[in-house]
């Protein structure tokens, strides 16, 4: 008996859709057989709008709520634009979950520093849910989040409720602030420079645009963190998600199969090279 064909999508339906910002939407979807599979924080699904195409989208919901798959999507291309226009009840194709996620087991007993830029908060949110659900197993939990402006921030109500909690520190910065903004202004790496944490007993989870991640990693290393304690989530073009189409290569790795989350020291040689 052969394994089911991983290239065949399942039928899923939009359950709920909400707008995060001008270009970003969060979709809750339900699919047959989802309960059994579950997902790990940092993993992604391949979502299809029938007749239009398929894109990789990270899971942004709570891994403990397995029947409900949540994806936060920026409408930047034909498929993602069609995805965010799907109304509740409409069907879409779903394959996954795929990939290697955040190192939740390695994080146990350590301070956890989550560094997010822009849409990069979406793949980190499942890790946050997991950290908060098992809060006693981790040291200090700190989220450093940068957005272009206050109106570009994702999950604003949730961020506000987390900011009221005593067991998580949240620092937010924006690139451009309107009048009335009283928070940080500047890029995320500057938050790292000002954050007090024990570099020897911390683990850093970094997700955002590649350029932001490079600067964030530089700042983490300057603060004394070891390369092997820094993890990042990468993005590449993907067509198959199972290591067979070749599109997502990043040096010797397939982002879909070996990532999207990598330990920094394993990608270091290639991250600094242009157009790799």
């Amino acid at each position: 008996m052969h394994a089911p064909d991983a290239m065949l999508p399942r039928i899923a339906r939009i359950r709920r859709r909400r707008r995060e910002s001008a270009q970003v939407w969060t979709l809750d979807i339900e699919a047959d057989g989802t309960e059994a599979s579950g997902f790990a924080p940092g993993q992604f699904n391949m979502l299809t709008v029938f007749g239009v195409g398929e894109v990789p989208i990270s899971l942004s919901g709570d891994p403990a709520r397995g029947t409900q798959l949540v994806h936060t999507i920026r409408a930047v291309g034909p498929v993602s634009e069609a995805l965010v226009q799907l109304k509740p009840g409409k069907e879409l194709g779903l394959r996954g979950p795929f990939g290697v996620g955040w190192p939740m087991a390695e994080a146990a007993g350590r301070d956890v520093l989550l560094v997010a830029g822009g849409l990069g908060l979406a793949p980190l949110r499942p890790a946050l849910y997991r950290l908060l659900a098992g809060r006693h197993r981790f040291g200090r939990v700190r989220l450093l989040y940068g957005a272009r402006g206050p109106e570009d921030m994702l999950f604003r109500r949730e961020l506000a409720s987390w900011q009221r909690r005593a067991d998580i520190d949240i620092e937010i910065t924006v690139d451009h602030a309107p009048s009335g903004w009283t928070g940080h202004v500047g890029v995320v790496p500057t938050l790292i420079e000002h954050a007090a944490f024990d570099p020897g007993n911390s683990i850093a989870l970094v997700c955002g645009p590649e350029i932001m991640m490079r600067f964030a990693i530089d700042a983490l290393r300057r603060a004394g963190m070891a390369d092997a304690a820094i993890y990042l989530s990468t993005e590449r073009n993907m067509k198959c998600a199972i290591g067979q189409c070749g599109h997502c290569q990043f040096g010797p790795t397939f982002v879909c199969r070996d990532g999207p989350v990598f330990r920094y020291d394993r990608l270091r040689t290639f991250l600094g090279l242009k157009e790799i």
């Binding site: 029938f50 067509k239 070749g246 599109h247």
Partner: peptide, 23 residues
Amino acid sequence: FCTSVEDSSDLAGETASRSRRWD
């Protein structure tokens, strides 16, 4: 071995399909 996929649909929108081709 690299490939890409292409989605298409009929004019009536009743069926949609995916094919894979060398890339």
